[in-house]
Design a protein around this nucleic acid. Structure first.
Lengths: 232, 232
DNA sequence: GGAATAGTGTCTTTTAGACACTATTAG
DNA sequence: CTAATAGTGTCTAAAAGACACTATTCC
């Protein structure tokens, strides 16, 4: 017994949403953008921003639209990639909802404005968020996003997506240190990132710190992979 | 204007399927399991095996079920991981269908039997499959799966999933050589894989080749990551 | 000058890669 | 013996990590 669009018996229509793990480094900590839900289910709880994929809209487009609605930031200005899809039957009490999670990494972003579904949006340190109970299975999604970000710092150049341009080698090192939660040797780090081909493009300018020698300024280069990798 | 399950206007119910990129090494080539479609759309074309996610069924469970239906192989016996989700609005002419692709890697599997939707199933070398026109966007999904497999050989132990146990170091090396399409130095490869912690567990037995010194036999160890990595 | 940060050099250890060499089998 | 494959040893180059040392700034 088939329906007009070819679904067999035992297969009902479902909903698909896109949820965003938006990470940045603020105040020396890795932080995620979370919203406080304005309606049931989980009303008042913290959750990842997101929403339904609209008719005729692709997944990447839906992620970029939600990102803009929650942060007023154009997706072209930061790193956006698909993370994973979550579809446990009981993950949403309203019905069968599949969520395609996206990971967004960007520099310290302007404080977000309330979006369509967002009663309130705020930055929250990920270690605190992971200890609290997020709505739905968003705790697991956030954990998966953080782990993906940590892993990608090793063998890609995405760390630079966290830095507002232009940035110094020390800025970049602070990103690694905060995301990995570990101190790195400044000398060796400097050698590695400046020798990696097409990772950093010098602007020629320098920035004066409060104290110490001026640091050379860089922009993101065209490389996406990092060879040799910087291992944790 | 909301419906009973919370979908706003402009968001219609959709379908979600699971499609499988099932890879093995046969006859010295990397091969994928493809089906010849028995009904429209794309009737007669080659496609990835897959089907609808059923009511109350999780994604991993749907992937394992489809795998068994197409190959009669229990998912517990091979490597199965989520690959990526595809949701372009026009990827299926029947309507809005999101496909969660899974990647399955296993030893030379028994020839598959025709499944529910499969008029005919067959192993096909991936280089040939990628040159032909697969149904839907399955060419891109297959390419993504192959690239994921190639990348994972570097820093994980999944290559052993391709080998029927017990296996020799040369068996494992052949997997790398076929998947990467490159010759590897037998001496250096031997040192790397036998020194990697918990990658290979010796059985104590040996296997006699047609000609040459007997080779030690191994089973898969508990390690999932490979340190140090074996780079392409 | 002292304190602090940027950046370079140097030394040791680890790993990759090339390849010589030994070990064990069949014929 | 030879042929072929398994496995070890050795050498060189590259890279990691520790850390000494120099450079440039503010105070």
């Amino acid at each position: 017994m088939n329906m007009s669009d070819g679904r067999p018996a035992g297969v009902s229509p479902v909903s698909v949403t896109v949820d965003l793990v938006i990470l940045t480094v603020r105040a020396g900590r890795l932080q995620a953008l979370l919203i406080q839900r304005g309606k049931i289910p989980f009303k008042g709880d913290l959750a990842l921003p997101g929403g339904y994929v609209r008719d005729g809209e692709g997944l990447d487009a839906a992620a970029a639209r939600e990102l803009f609605e929650e942060t007023t930031i154009d997706a072209a200005h930061l790193h956006l990639e698909q993370l994973r899809t979550y579809g446990d039957p009981d993950r949403d009490p309203r019905g069968r909802v599949f969520t395609v999670a996206y990971l967004a990494l960007g520099p310290n972003l302007p404080l977000p404005v309330a979006g369509t579904d967002a009663a309130e949006a705020r930055w929250c340190p990920v270690d605190e968020a992971l200890e609290s109970d997020l709505a739905f299975d968003h705790g697991r999604i956030l954990a998966d996003g953080v782990e993906r970000a940590r892993a990608k710092l090793e063998y890609t150049t995405v760390a630079a997506a966290f830095c507002p341009e232009p940035f110094t080698v020390a800025d970049l090192r602070h990103i690694y240190e905060v995301v990995w939660g570990a101190k790195l040797d400044p000398s060796n780090f400097h050698r590695k990132v400046t020798r990696a081909q097409d990772f950093l493009v010098p602007t020629g300018d320098h920035r004066l710190p409060d104290l110490g020698r001026p640091a050379a300024l860089y922009r993101r280069g065209p490389a996406t992979t990092l060879t040799p990798a910087i291992l944790r």
